[in-house]
Design a protein around this nucleic acid. Sequence first.
DNA 1: GTACTGGGCCAC
DNA 2: AAACGTGGCCCAGTAC
Length: 561
Amino acid sequence: MFAVLSRAGDPDAAALTVLDASGALVRSEEHPRRALPAVVTALEADRPRWVWDDTARWYPPLLAAGVRVERCVDLRLCHAILRNSVFTTESSLATAPRSTWDAPGVGAADPGALFDLGGGDAEPDRDEVLAEFAAQQAAVDGSPEPGRIALLLAAESVGALLAAEMTHAGLPWRADVHDRLLSDLLGPRPAPGLRPARLESTLDEVRRALDDDTVNPDSPAALLAALRRAGIEARSTRSWELERVEHPAIEPLLRYKKLARLLAANGWHWLDTWVSGGRFRPVFVPGGVVTGRWASNGGGALQLPQHVRGAVLADEGWTFVVADAAQLEPRVLAAMAGDTAMAKAGQGTDLYEGMVRSGAVERREQAKYGMLGAMYGGTSGESGRMLPRLARAYPRAIGLVEEAARAGERGERVSTRLGRSSPKPGSEWQRVQASAYGDEASELDERRARGDSRAWGRFTRNFVVQGTAAEWALCWLGSLRRRLWQLGAGQPGDGQLTDRPHLVFFLHDEVIVHTPEHLAAEVAQAVQAAADEAGRLLFGSFPIEFRLSVATVRSYADAKD
DNA sequence: GTACTGGGCCAC
DNA sequence: AAACGTGGCCCAGTAC
C-alpha cells in the first residue's frame, strides 16, 4: 500500500492519495496541513510506504509533531538515480527531457538556483507526483536488474528518513565542555575581533623567530614571503612541508596553525552558531555526493576534528554506541569482485593483517597503503610499489578497479553493485580528448588529454568502490534504524523517536547511537546484526565479513582505539 | 558591501 | 609518505 502526499489546490492543504500494492487508486482526499500529523499517524498503523517528492519537505514538520514513519519513497532522490543508471537507460524516465525532478531538492539547493524559478523548491501537485511515481515503477520493472535497483531506491529513501530524524534528534553536545576545552588550549574567550591570549603569544614567538613583527601567518602569500626572507626555502606553507624544515620559527608556527585552525573551524563562533539546546544539528544531504555518499550543510559535520569530540557527551542515564566498519572499502571491493582470496584474508581478523598472514605482503602498512593506492589510483611511494604484488595475490579485486579506471579513461560510465552510475564526463573533457586526435594536435594538447583522461579514470576507479560502500552503509543504516525502533518498544515513554535508542550521527562508515544505558549491550548486537544483514543484501551468500569496531562510551572522544 | 578563487586543513 | 578518491569550510585577496 502506498500513501502519496502532494500539494493540493489550497496552499494550506495537502492531497493524500492512497494506492493499493498494484498501484490502483483506493481513495483520494485533502487535509489541512495542520491535520497531517494526525492523518499520517492514523494511516501509519497500516504500514504504508509514504510517497512524496522530497523527504526534506514533508518529514521535518511531522517529526516536529512527534510523528515517525517507517518507510517512504523519496521521488527526487530516486529520480536522480534512475535518470543516470545504466540499468534504466531505456526507460522513458531516463530518455525524457530534464524537468523539475532533476533540480536539487529542499535544503540541497545550490545558491545559483535562486534565480531558477522552476527549481526543485516548487512543490509538485498530485498529478505530477503520481505520474512520476508511475514512471519510476515502470523504469524499475523494465530494468535488467529490477531487484538491485529497487533495493537501491529503498535504501536511498530510508536514508532520507534517517537524515531528517538525525537532524531532529541532534548530536548531544556539551557547550560548557567545549568552552573549557577551547579555554585550555587557546586561553579564555577574547572580545570579538581579538586573538585569544595563547594564540597571540604563540604568534609573538613566530614573529620573533622570523625577526618580523608584522607578518600575518593567516595569509599564505605573506607567510611564504616572510619565510623566504628568513632564509627558509619552502615551496608552500603546508604543515607537512614545513615539518621537514630546520628553523626555530617552525615549531611555534606549526603550533600557531593548529590553534588558529581550531579557533576558526570549531571555536566559540562555531559553538554559538551550531549548538543550541545541548544539540548539534547538522543538515545531512543524502545523495549529495556523486558516488552516493551523503554531503552535509552547516557546521562541517563531515569533518568534526578529533580535538573537539570530547564535547560530544551522552545525556544523563544514556550512553553512546559508536561503531565503525573496519576496512569497509577493500571488503566491499573484495565482495563485488568475487575475490574469495581477499575475502578470506578478512575473515575473523583485520583485513590488512590477514593479507600479511596470507603472504601477499610483509607488513600491515604495505597492505593498507597498497589497497588505498589501488582504490584511489595512487602510483607513487609505497602504494605504487605494492600494486604488482597485490595484483598477483588478488587478481579479481585489483582487476575490477583497473577495469573501472580504463573505462573512465575512455569516457565510459561505470556502476556500483546496485546500479548507481557515474556521470558522463563533461563537454570540456570530450573537447580536450577530441582535440588530441586532431591533425594539428600539439604535444601540449596530447599531454592535457592524457592527464584529463587519467584523472577521470581515477574518479571512476574510486566511484565503483566508494559508491558501493555507500550502498552498504545505507543498507546498514536502514536495518539498524528498524532494529533500534523495535528495541525501544515497550520501554516507558516509547512514543517519541528520541525516547528510544536512536541514531544521532553518521559519517560514511561510522555511526553513533544514543541509547538508554541499560539497552547498550543490545544496541551493540543490533549494530553488528545490521552490518551482517547489509552484507547479505548486497552480496548474497558470498562469504565476506563486515567487521565492526564497536565502543560503548559516554564521550565520543573515547571511541577511537 | 557581495561574489568568487586559491591556499590550506579537517574528515572518511 | 606526501599526491592519489570524495567532501565542507575557513581565511586572504581580488574584482565589481
